[in-house]
Computed example of a mutant assay.
Amino acid sequence: MLITIKEGYVPGCIGRIAELHAKYYSAANGFGVAFEAKVARELADFCENYKPGRDGIWLAQHNGSIEGSIVIDGTKAETAGAHLRWFITTDAIRGQGIGSKLLEEAIDFVQTGGYQTTYLWTFSGLAAAKHLYESHHFRLVHESPGNQWGAVVNEQRFERSAA
Score class of each variant (00 low, 15 high):
62 H>S: 15
102 L>Q: 00
34 A>N: 04
109 F>K: 02
101 K>Q: 15
66 I>Y: 00
160 R>S: 05
68 G>S: 08
29 N>K: 08
156 Q>D: 13
96 Q>M: 13
48 E>M: 13
12 G>V: 05
7 E>S: 10
128 A>Q: 10
56 G>N: 06
20 L>H: 03
91 D>L: 12
132 L>W: 04
60 A>F: 00
77 A>S: 15
124 S>K: 11
136 H>F: 06
109 F>Y: 11
111 Q>V: 11
143 E>C: 08
59 L>F: 05
80 A>F: 15
126 L>V: 12
108 D>Q: 11
1 M>C: 09
15 G>E: 10
58 W>N: 00
125 G>V: 10
155 E>C: 14
142 H>G: 05
77 A>N: 09
108 D>R: 14
19 E>W: 09
146 G>I: 04
23 K>G: 09
142 H>D: 09
121 W>F: 13
25 Y>M: 07
154 N>Q: 10
161 S>D: 11
54 R>S: 02
126 L>H: 07
129 A>F: 08
80 A>G: 13
72 I>E: 02
160 R>C: 04
105 E>M: 05
79 T>N: 15
79 T>M: 14
89 T>A: 09
26 S>I: 05
32 G>M: 00
131 H>T: 11
70 I>D: 01
132 L>T: 02
15 G>F: 08
29 N>R: 09
34 A>I: 09
110 V>Q: 07
143 E>H: 07
3 I>R: 00
91 D>M: 09
90 T>L: 11
123 F>P: 01
150 G>R: 01
143 E>K: 13
150 G>M: 01
48 E>N: 13
163 A>F: 08
